[in-house]
Amino acid sequence: MIGPVWRIPAALALLSAAGLLVALVEDGAWDGLGAAALLLPLLAAWLAGRRR
């Protein structure tokens, strides 16, 4: 079982991995979706960096 500490990073990692696989389909819409999924973890990091 994934403990509470790991739930958010695990979800982000899953999204990121799904983004890689989805983007490999290499089609306009899928590519955009894949790139968005890959950028979500970075958005999370950016928000974390802003949090004081």
């Binding site: 990121s16 890689l20 999370a44 974390a48």
Partner: peptide, 16 residues
Amino acid sequence: DLHNILGVVTLSWVLV
């Protein structure tokens, strides 16, 4: 904190 956050959110990409 930034090192850890960036590391954990980019984990799967970095591993792949």
